[in-house]
Design a protein around this nucleic acid. Sequence first.
RNA 1: GCGCCCUUAGCUCAGUUGGCUAGAGCAACGGUUUUCUAAACCGUGGGUCGGAGGUUCGAAUCCUUCAGGGCGCGCCA
Length: 576
Amino acid sequence: MNIFLTYLDKFIASLNTIANNGDINLPENLNGLIVELPPKKLQADISCNAPLILSKINNKESLNLANFLLKKFQEDFEEFEEIFITKPGFLNFKFKESFWENFLFTAIKEKEKFGSKIDKKKKYNVEFVSANPTGPLHVGHCRGAVLGDTISNILKFNGNEVVREYYVNDYGNQVDNFTKSVFFRIKEILNNENFPENEKDLYPGKYVADIAKNIIDKKKIKNFQNLENIFENLKKSSIEESIALIKKNLKLLGVEHDLFTYESKLVNEEKVEKTIEKLKKKNFIYSGKIEAPESKKNNTHELREQLLFKSTLFNDDKDRAIKKSDLTWTYFSSDLAYHDFKIERGFDELINILGADHAGYINRITAGVSALSDRKKKLTCKVSRLVKLIKNGKPFKMSKRKGDYITVEDLINEVGKDAARFIMLSRNSDVELEFDFEKVKEKSKENPLYYVQYCHARICSVFRNLNIKIDSEIKIKDKVFKLDKYEREIIKKISEWPKCLAISQNKLEPHRIPIYLYELSTLFHSYWNLGKEDKAYRFIIEDKPGSAKKMNLLKLISFIIKSGLSLVGVEAPTKM
RNA sequence: GCGCCCUUAGCUCAGUUGGCUAGAGCAACGGUUUUCUAAACCGUGGGUCGGAGGUUCGAAUCCUUCAGGGCGCGCCA
């Protein structure tokens, strides 16, 4: 139950009634109307800006209008203990205790499901990671991986259908170079031939030798004399090994995709031709020339006629090449085919999680989706910005030279899955993230993950001591339901949880969840410590549970933390 | 040269569709433990929201412009 949305609807209904009686005028739409949390100092639960929005069209001072609406709302609603006006013309509402009592007991029935909204179920495709199958994942891939995974979790939590997809770029130069690299490592192992370290475009990493060894051991290929003869087979095996490695890495992060789609498959099935043909029919393909970028100093650019896609019609800054000079497809054209394949599968929403270095690609591929779907489907791209690694207080630069390359495996071994995920997700993905190994490993308040988990563990300890199962019904009846200022603050915070989840989904911003959980935990820890000063604030009084109000508040907090952490992909320990 | 993103307290950052006196944590200083988990709590100080204009009843948020930082930019994927 999102009280902000509920009361937005209720106020709109009320305003409509008032308008129908001819007492006020309403504009065409009430888009600017909001119901939100008032500033802390105000001692109110929700506030509404109706008088400010409506003052112009009614030609009235907003404070006058506020006075008028205040009286109307007092007549229309009985759940408010108090309604008052603040400065330019806000209406502030304070709920009666009975409202919160009802809220608490309704919410508790939903358990971990509290906060999910299932209004319009949609079918989502979330494509993420999609790293080239040329080696294991490194730290840079992590952020996108946990971002995509968590966005998918949130969408599912809210009742949507989600397919998590990985696009394997197993076609083109890079996998060919990778295959060559594997070949040289095989020769190195079998014949003691040196790996050509200085040859450009090869993959020198140690893992390539491991892959080479696996391929030799599996004996699918018998004779490694001539690369040309075995190239296709070797490529297939090399990619298989890479993907196995990547899947293993993803598992360490707690990420599992539903579907791996291979670029080579689309190429082999002539899906690319078909897609380009489709675009030709729609008149989005033409033969033309594109300029090189200004900055390129060496003027080796050959201005030549080639097949282009009119992405400029859809907000891109230049048209994009469809075929290379050797007449094979560009990466972009097979990606168009891939997205056409997504469109054909009938998703309502397409989401791509891209790394920072691919941000420049967004316009052309969203243009492609618009063109292919006649603007009916929208592709939303979310960029995960760089992770700035800090080790021993200093920035740690990764380079592709072997040695100073941190893989997912290294990361998980060092800080663990939970800490890695929680910290990676605790910042807006639009912003560079500082990832300090020492801080992430710390087991104290310095580390927000432990702070939140500790909150859950503390609540569990209360129920453990009482010998009550945390999800069983509490059978106490309070004589009076009365919230003090601490409890009121907590329940208000709880009422923000559905809103937090809704925004996280709408804006694809999961970082709001760790931040919310941290804030909720802060309130809880303060509340807990009150019991040190004043025994009335204990949850266990003479071996018996305190009031139903208190016990249910605890339960609800623990449910939220548990479900919030599970969305983020992190354990909620019952004991620490 | 062009595009995208960022600039909020000493540091790391919150702050949906503009809203009321801009919020946390860390660091600094001072306190709390025979008591349900101190991996915790309480208190104190700290800000022209990068600069300048503009739109608005109202701007950290929108527009223009300048400065600083990051990431990209031909048929690599």
